[in-house]
């Protein structure tokens, strides 16, 4: 029993990371039609920015700075690189591919290829006893952050003008323009939000793994992609459900099966979902 609780909470912690990355990816893809390979870069940029000032500024301001830097990176990428290629989706994907290669190499040249030890709040290193299981408190940090982000995102999408524009744009971008709305401002906004959430995910991943490295974003990104596709492109709640499914499946199968079986089973889940429901759990049919 205690093993199950520990596995479940660890799986949910991982799911929280996936969700933070996937929700931004999903909105960016759903609205702007861009499969963003540079999303992993936003994550690493946020983590390294926070790491750099954490000694001198203290942890909380460092976290805020990391999120802000990642958000600014997202906005900048959209304005400078993505916007000039408006509607040319393949080129947009290619640019993000180039950016992910060049960006990781840039991080590597500035901070080195080796992993850096990442600080975490003292309480996150403690252990909480639940139903007989000794659960490290950092799991709750991740899960709490993800739940807050989910609620915040849903409220934003539901109750604000921009949220309305984003929801409508995910359905039919052209029609939003035909109502006299400059939908490209919403593109910049989702890139900024995606960047901020990825930065937060990078920082939390740093705390969870106790270290950061330039390639960390890329490896998390692949599972986030899988979560996005399973959840349905453009759906925040779909991404949340898929993240939970993927995180739990991966943890449990990795523990009870052979090493690596969890990762394989996640891909099998993806294949199954795509064959049965090509649009994902909650999504509309993917455009193009």
């Amino acid at each position: 029993m205690s093993t199950v609780v520990l596995l479940a909470l660890t799986g949910l912690g991982l799911a929280a990371l996936y969700f933070l990355i996937a929700s931004g990816l999903s909105l960016v893809f759903g609205l702007a039609g861009v499969l963003n390979f540079a999303h992993g870069l936003f994550l690493s940029v946020g983590a390294y920015a926070a790491w750099t000032v954490s000694e001198s500024w203290g942890l909380a301001p460092a976290v805020l700075l990391g999120i802000a830097v990642a958000a600014a990176t997202g906005a900048l990428v959209e304005l400078v690189l993505i916007r000039p290629l408006y509607t040319r989706h393949t080129e947009q994907v290619l640019v993000t591919v180039g950016l992910s290669l060049a960006g990781v190499a840039l991080l590597q040249s500035v901070w080195g290829a080796d992993a850096r030890v990442f600080p975490r709040p003292a309480w996150a290193s403690s252990v909480v006893s639940i139903a007989g299981a000794q659960v490290p408190a950092d799991r709750f940090l991740l899960i709490g952050a993800a739940v807050l982000v989910l609620l915040g995102l849903l409220a934003f999408l539901r109750f604000t003008r921009y949220g309305l524009v984003i929801r409508a744009g995910v359905e039919n971008r052209d029609m939003v323009s035909a109502l006299g709305i400059d939908v490209r401002n919403a593109f910049t906004l989702v890139f900024t939000i995606g960047g901020a959430l990825a930065g937060l995910a990078g920082i939390l991943a740093g705390m969870y793994f106790s270290s950061i490295s330039p390639g960390q974003g890329a490896s998390l990104l692949i599972f986030a992609f899988i979560v996005v596709v399973i959840g349905g492109l453009g759906s925040v709640t779909g991404a949340f459900a898929a993240a939970v499914a993927v995180g739990l499946l991966q943890q449990f199968v990795n523990y009870y099966g052979t090493a690596g079986a969890g990762d394989v089973s996640v891909v099998a889940l993806l294949a199954a979902v795509l064959l049965l429901r090509p649009a994902g759990l909650a999504g509309k049919a993917a455009p193009a």
Binding site: V95, V97, G98, L101, A102, S109, V110
Partner: peptide, 17 residues
């Protein structure tokens, strides 16, 4: 960063696109 092959190639690639 020019010491990193991928930085140079990635940047070249973006410029090419």
């Amino acid at each position: 960063p020019f010491g990193e092959p991928l930085f140079v190639l990635g940047t070249l690639f973006i410029l090419a696109v």
